[in-house]
Write a protein that binds this DNA or RNA. Structure first.
Lengths: 146, 146
DNA sequence: TCGAAAATCACCCTTTCTGGTGACGCGCGG
DNA sequence: CCGCGCGTCACCAGAAAGGGTGATTTTCGA
């Protein structure tokens, strides 16, 4: 805003100078008053229009419309670190949410079923869940999994 | 647009008339040229600004932003009838998805745990799931539950 | 390179879940 | 009135899941 005011001031000064020049020419060369007034009017009208445009250029109205978007899933890393969940545990959590049994997860993750159990137990513990269904529900609430 | 041009023309005419009046006054009362020019400048600058604002007033940019809307859940009744799921079974399915154990569901639904087991078994059977986690995953895919 | 965190695996015991079978009552339409 | 779908309940055996403890290896940053 101040930049605009300053700019306007400078412009006013310049135009006064121009005015003087025009006045001088008017005095020397015998031009009519109408031409002088017309010139001034034209110049200031242009400046005014330009200023008006300048002032309103940034006033675009951003209307945010709620559209059912696919909503790309973004994991809440803050929650992940807050709960102290390791990458492997998150992986096992996703497998659990996919409806796989410990044995199936073991096959998919290339580890033993006992290892999966260990990870699963830690996940349940960290999520404060007593059952894997509850863990899944919580994980989705906390945006840990899709 | 044509209205603006017309308006501008009319205004120009009016202002020329005003100009004439000012000129007359200038001739009668001995005012300086600077005041005359300043007045004209001020008037036309104002008009210009007003015009600029007028021209850009309608130029609001409507930017539709895709925002993840809450997306109200609507159960796929077609799927429900296709799978032959009864209201009670859907109810138990929702409890399962909430992470409750059979015992807890029994308390919530005011029935015995055995009854919950029966319902749960039928739900698993109808959804072609081997585990309740899988049933929940399928149910969400098929839009049976939120 | 040293140590902590992470990942891996095993064993035992309890709880929960699943599958199968059978049974009873209730309401509704043929 | 009888059958059928639905909801209810029970029992049992086996599978899966969960809790606890302990241990080894890997990884990675100070």
């Amino acid at each position: 805003m101040w930049r605009h005011i300053l700019l306007y001031g400078v412009l006013a000064g310049v135009l006064v100078a121009v005015l003087r020049g025009i006045e001088y020419r008017w005095l020397v060369i015998d031009h009519s008053l109408e031409i002088y007034g017309g010139l001034v009017a034209a110049v200031f009208a242009s400046v005014g229009i330009w200023l008006g445009l300048k002032l309103t250029r940034k006033r675009i109205e951003i209307r945010e419309v709620l559209v059912p978007a696919p909503a790309v899933f973004v994991r809440d890393e803050a929650q992940v670190s807050a709960l102290g969940l390791t990458p492997r545990e998150l992986e096992i959590l996703e497998f659990m949410a996919a409806g796989l049994s410990n044995k199936e997860i073991a096959e998919q993750a290339f580890v033993s079923e006992n290892t999966v159990k260990t990870h699963a137990s830690r996940v349940l513990d960290k999520l404060g869940a007593a059952r894997r269904t509850q863990a899944i529900q919580r994980a989705k609430e906390l945006r840990l999994i899709a």
